[in-house]
Simulated assay, not measured.
Amino acid sequence: MTTRVAANGIDIAYESFGSPEGRPLLLIMGLGAQLIHWDEGLCELLAEQGHHVVRFDNRDAGLSTHFHDEGVPALGAPSPYLLDDLADDAAGLMDALGWPAAHVAGASMGGMIAQALAIRHPERVLTLTSIMSTPGPSVAPPTEAALAALMARPPAGREAVLAHALRTWSVLGSPGFDLDHERISELAGLAYDRCFDPEGTARQLAAIMASPDRTELLAGVRVPTLVVHGEADQLIPVAAAHATAAAIPGARLVTYPGMGHDLPRPLWPSFVDEITKLTAT
């Protein structure tokens, strides 16, 4: 069941899995993605390993607050918010949940937010898992094909949006694993029905581009850290994972051949095992 709470001056929608007595695990999703993009099956596997899992919609995504009045920032214009603000949203959600601290895992932009959370609110982060993410967008630029897929404006209409999603993930997805057309279409349809807001995604992208590189500040992170990345990622190439792991003292780096910029189902058991080993320390 989706719940909305007030946090950091906005409303945040979230869902939870597992026992409230479990180890708190906050999952932060990426650019334009919604809480449903943390697949229920993956969340349930994490819950089975003793986690109290919470997935949520970032601002300008899903059922959380959207900044419609801000429009879309012009190229070079100030962003209406930064990744630090999204990190503060996550801390505010933890307040609303009654969590003094939590294990935090973020994917793509969510990994950037998780990094910012560990920097800005170190006392709130028990462990950090940064998945297919980067300390800054200039660390490992995307390929031309990935950039074109990212920047392509979604068409109007539900069926066209589903077709657009299949085209996008045929480029960004994992070449070492079968592309799950049915699941991509299902998720795209669910996301469209929950909330379709390309301008919100544009504002999130502006926040990424306007936020400073975190490399130097990551040197101050002192929590157990796991860095996960696909070796075939075209959107955020694997060099970004090496840079992240090098920046955080003691970070463990795990990379997967054939994995692109998604979370292939066959790798879920490994993801869960790696995260569980981290959070159980």
Rank of each mutant, 00 (worst) to 15 (best):
L187F: 09
L263N: 06
S138V: 15
D193Q: 10
A243G: 01
V221G: 12
L45P: 00
C195Q: 09
F67K: 12
P237W: 08
G220Y: 13
T3N: 12
H261T: 04
V221P: 02
E182D: 12
L147V: 11
S133N: 04
V104I: 12
I248Y: 01
E231Y: 05
H242P: 07
R265V: 15
L82W: 09
G62F: 05
G230Q: 02
V5D: 05
M112L: 10
L117E: 08
A280T: 15
P237Y: 10
Q49P: 00
A239M: 07
A246Y: 11
V272A: 07
L253M: 01
A156H: 12
G62K: 02
N8A: 02
A280H: 14
A47C: 09
M132R: 02
M29N: 14
R153H: 14
F271R: 05
R252M: 13
A241D: 03
P122C: 00
L235V: 05
D57V: 02
V72L: 08
E274K: 04
G189R: 01
A160I: 07
A188R: 06
F17C: 06
L205I: 06
H37N: 15
A243R: 01
L147K: 12
T127Y: 09
T168G: 14
A87P: 07
E15C: 08
P269N: 14
F177D: 00
G250R: 05
L263R: 05
D11P: 08
A7T: 02
A241G: 08
I12M: 13
S79Q: 09
A107M: 15
A245C: 03
L278D: 01
S79D: 10
V161H: 09
L147S: 09
D88M: 13
A87F: 03
H66C: 05
H229M: 09
V5Y: 05
L263C: 04
V125A: 11
H229P: 04
M132P: 00
V53N: 00
L25Q: 07
P24V: 11
H103F: 04
D233G: 14
M151G: 03
S185P: 07
G189D: 07
V139L: 09
L150Y: 12
D178L: 14
D197L: 08
P137N: 12
T244H: 04
D95Y: 04
H66I: 02
S133G: 06
V228K: 04
E40S: 12
W268D: 10
A219H: 04
L172H: 06
S174W: 07
L93E: 03
K277M: 13
A74W: 06
E15M: 08
V254P: 11
V223W: 09
G50W: 13
P269E: 13
R23M: 13
E144M: 08
P154T: 07
V139W: 11
G230Y: 02
S170Y: 03
L150P: 12
G189F: 03
I131F: 10
A163E: 12
N58I: 08
D178V: 13
G260L: 04
L267M: 10
R252S: 06
R4E: 08
A247Q: 00
L45H: 04
Q234R: 14
